[in-house]
Design a protein around this nucleic acid. Structure first.
Length: 484
RNA sequence: GGCCUGUUGGAGAAGGGGCUUAACUCACCAGCCUUUCACGCUGGCAUUCAGGGGUUCAAAUCCCCUACAGGUCACCA
């Protein structure tokens, strides 16, 4: 049996977006599951829009997600080069073959003419497709016009009355009539092949066994199949996965907020959460658990379980998943991830000391259970650093009016004064002692202290907050909220 | 406009003729736990599978039509 080989073939025309990441992920999952190869090929035949910067972004995002590749422009491989602009000589060879066999021809029609024809056809309600005007140009005329400096495109002669059947792994049997397809361009006037032509050659030469890509390519597939047939090549197994939609059920776009993988990274999402979430978009593991490790997902994943219908990107679920992964992580890891965010927000200098790191670690322990994304830590920072406390909430204000408050606060001050180690465990003990000594418990003890210290009714555990604030800040805040 | 695809709850979805009184997960609601919030736990949340016809003893599941949504018809991929 032939080797299972899949590929992700992005165009470096922008950062890796969510949809592309999911296509890459599905390919990756299947490759790993079947002991196959995962190849990344750069489709940069759009010279205008391709950039090296995008290329780097794509690889950085793939690496961040943990999609390690077997062959690519960075890792190399036996089927290279893996960048289409470096394969131009290869395409040319096949263009010539088609030309020679009369299966393709030069076309000198201007873009304007084509556009007009197209519009006219559309207006008449006909299928807009190329008329085939240049199909029968004589070799002499072609040679002459090229000699004169005209730059023709090369078109593929689409056979008439042919039925193209695609046996798609997720959509089933899909049938197209060749009559609906006009002679399409395979080589542009600048000599660069078009997508439909280059993919076929590359997928064949790279021995790709399964082509898994977004549904938007389904309509292109008959063109490609026709090309495979013209060359007498075996057609790979196709699988067209549905699109990802925004909450308004429209194709994901900038309007929907973050669309690129780096944006999620910047917002404080963990790669395993995004990995897990993307896998769940259009695929369901069947069981009760949806939180799965990379290994579990690989073990369970299969094209049979991939849904045909488009999936709506649910940010709430991503957040929930991410929160789960944050809680599962060690405080040390979250600390490492939090530091850059805090530096960006101005809570930390560029160079940090071990002491500052420790301080962040304490904050992480206090808020780890509460946050869904790393950057939400910033929301808690005023709680830990502000010099001034303002009690805005009426309910909070009334807490301090209770008759037992002076007793609780006096006991609290006493205990703090005697406290040697400002650590969570020690502070916990203090609260127990206060309860015992005052005969008050629960809210009666905690609420006044919480409000006096933070000005709020809710927040992280007090035994975490107090050591972070430290002696001076605690004293300062008590002074402000309770007076001398 | 032609061709192609899809339509199960607010969202992801399972189910593909009788096992479904339509799994599971998120969200939401209620309760419990807890010093608060969060976490966690328990329970609730579609008499119905876009609508209409048919086939059948039996349909969410098969067929047809309609509606809606999306993709594509580029010298973009």
């Amino acid at each position: 049996m032939e080797k299972f080989r899949v590929r992700f073939a992005p165009s470096p025309t922008g950062p890796l977006h969510i949809g592309g990441a999911r296509s890459a992920l599905f390919n990756y999952l299947l490759a790993r599951k079947n002991g196959g190869d995962f190849i990344v090929r750069i489709e940069d035949t759009d010279l205008e829009r391709s950039s090296h910067e995008s290329e780097e972004n794509i690889f950085a995002s793939l690496a961040w997600l943990g999609l390690d590749m077997d062959e690519s422009i960075v890792s190399g491989g036996d089927y290279g080069p893996y960048r289409q602009t470096e394969r131009l000589a290869i395409y040319q060879q096949y263009t010539e073959e088609l030309l020679k066999r009369g299966l393709a021809y030069y076309c000198f029609c201007s873009e304007e003419d084509i556009a007009n024809e197209r519009q006219a056809a559309m207006d008449k309600g006909e299928v807009p497709k190329y008329s085939g005007k240049c199909r029968n140009l004589s070799t002499e005329e072609v040679a002459e016009r090229i000699a004169k400096g005209e730059k023709p495109v090369v078109r593929f002669s689409v056979p008439h009355d042919q039925r193209v059947v695609i046996d798609d792994a997720v959509r089933g049997r899909v049938v197209f009539e060749s009559e609906g397809i006009g002679d399409f361009v395979i080589v542009k006037s600048d000599g660069i092949p078009t997508y439909n032509f280059a993919v076929v050659i590359d997928d064949h030469l790279m021995a790709i066994s399964h082509v898994i890509r977004a549904e938007e390519h389904l309509s292109n597939t008959p063109r490609q199949v026709l090309l495979y047939e013209a060359f007498g090549w075996q057609v790979p197994q196709f699988a067209h996965i549905s699109l990802i939609l925004g909450e308004d059920h429209k194709k994901m776009s900038k309007r929907h907020g973050a669309t690129s993988v780096v944006q999620y990274q910047e917002m404080g999402y963990l790669p395993e959460a995004v990995f897990n979430f993307l896998a769940l978009l259009g695929w369901s593991p069947g069981g009760e658990d949806e939180i799965m490790s990379k290994e579990e997902i690989i073990a369970k994943f299969s094209l049979d379980g991939v849904a045909k219908n488009p999936a709506v990107f649910d940010m709430e679920k991503l957040k929930w998943l991410n929160g789960n992964y944050i809680r599962q992580s060690t405080p040390e890891r979250i600390t490492d991830l939090a530091i850059p965010f805090l530096q960006k927000e101005g809570y930390l200098p560029t160079e940090i000391t071990d002491e500052q790191r420790h301080w962040v670690n304490l904050i992480v322990q206090a808020v780890q259970e509460k946050i869904h994304t790393i950057n939400e830590i910033a929301d808690f920072m005023p709680l830990f650093v502000d010099e001034t406390v303002n009690i805005v909430d009426e309910e909070a204000k009334s807490v301090l009016l209770d008759e037992d408050v002076p007793i609780v606060m006096a006991a609290f001050r006493n205990k703090l004064a005697a406290l040697e180690n400002w650590e969570a465990e020690q502070v916990k003990k203090i609260f127990k002692e206060i309860s015992k000594e005052t005969g008050l418990k629960g809210k009666k003890v905690f609420m006044p202290i919480r409000v006096a210290l933070t000005g709020q009714m809710h927040g992280p555990d007090l035994h975490f907050i107090i050591p972070i604030l430290g002696k001076e800040l605690v004293a300062e805040r008590l002074k402000q909220t309770l007076g001398e």
